[in-house]
Amino acid sequence: MFGTQAVVLIVFLICWQLASGTLIHELMISKPSNVFPLFWKWVTDGTIFTAAGVTFTNAFLGLIIGGAAGITVGVFLGQSSWLADIFEPFITAIYTMPKHALIPLFIMWVGIGSQLSVLTSAVIVFFLIFFNTFFGIREVKASLISAVRIMGGSAFDVLWRVRLPSALVWVVAALKLAVPQAIVGVVVAEMLAGNSGLGFLVSKNAHSFNAAGTYAALLALLVAGFLVDRLMTFLTKKPLEWKNSGSAM
């Protein structure tokens, strides 16, 4: 399998190299022979790592803030049908709106820079975590809740021993989507109104019509996204297997 993938990649790079400057203007598609040396230069002089550090720091802060808010609201609404009936439709309506369309509004609120990136990321993460927490709380089997209450458990016992463990698995499952989307939110904010980070690196080179720089910055995003996906797949593999096996019972 690896050998086949390597052949596909090599063929793709050869076709890319031959097409650039002949079939397609090099301003639109820079040659790999220009992109990869520039990418390596950025690696050695620290440009990539500095930009990635800004992007991932903001994405992490957005993940923490949005995740904490999503879990908190999800737990409250998941336990109360009355509150859920009131607020869930409003949350769903906002969820259906493209979050990136809110960036101009966020600029009015917090300006540009890290605050904008963190806020954008947090809003995106909030909805992903909220819905999984909400449904995780509500999908607990009634028999388990009844068993705890029969043994004299209080409402707090039901929450702590039954509902939260159930929701935790759903939250872990949501992280597989929330982490990459947190990064996406930061990158988009950096591209539109940032002054640092990987998104700003893409935007800066694109605005100066530097095709090689644009593709090198996109390559950095591609590598970072791939590594994050593999990391989250590894971290969530066991919880997701447990969740799926439990759902199948």
Rank of each mutant, 00 (worst) to 15 (best):
V184G: 01
V184T: 12
G185Y: 01
G185H: 03
V186I: 11
V186N: 01
V187Y: 00
V187G: 00
V188G: 04
V188Y: 05
A189N: 02
A189Y: 02
E190Q: 14
L192F: 09
L192N: 01
A193C: 10
G194A: 08
G194S: 06
G194L: 06
N195M: 02
N195A: 07
N195Y: 09
S196N: 08
S196R: 10
G197V: 12
G197F: 05
G197P: 02
L198M: 12
L198A: 03
L198G: 00
G199A: 09
G199H: 05
F200V: 09
L201W: 06
L201N: 03
V202S: 06
S203M: 10
S203W: 05
S203G: 06
K204D: 00
K204F: 08
N205V: 02
N205T: 05
N205A: 15
A206H: 05
A206I: 11
A206P: 03
H207L: 15
S208H: 05
F209V: 11
F209E: 12
A211W: 07
A211C: 09
A211I: 07
A212T: 08
A212N: 11
A212I: 13
A212R: 09
A212Y: 05
G213Q: 01
G213D: 00
G213P: 00
G213H: 01
T214I: 12
T214N: 04
T214F: 08
Y215N: 05
A217D: 01
L218W: 02
L219H: 06
A220Q: 10
A220S: 15
A220W: 04
A220H: 03
L221E: 06
L222I: 06
L222V: 08
V223Y: 11
G225A: 11
G225S: 15
G225W: 13
G225M: 10
F226P: 02
F226T: 09
L227C: 13
L227T: 03
L227I: 06
L227S: 05
L227E: 10
L227M: 12
L227K: 03
L227W: 11
V228G: 02
V228Y: 14
D229F: 12
D229L: 14
D229G: 08
D229Q: 14
D229C: 14
D229R: 15
L231I: 07
L231C: 04
L231Q: 10
L231V: 10
T233K: 14
T233F: 13
T233D: 14
L235K: 05
L235F: 12
L235M: 15
L235W: 09
T236A: 15
K237E: 08
K237D: 06
K237F: 15
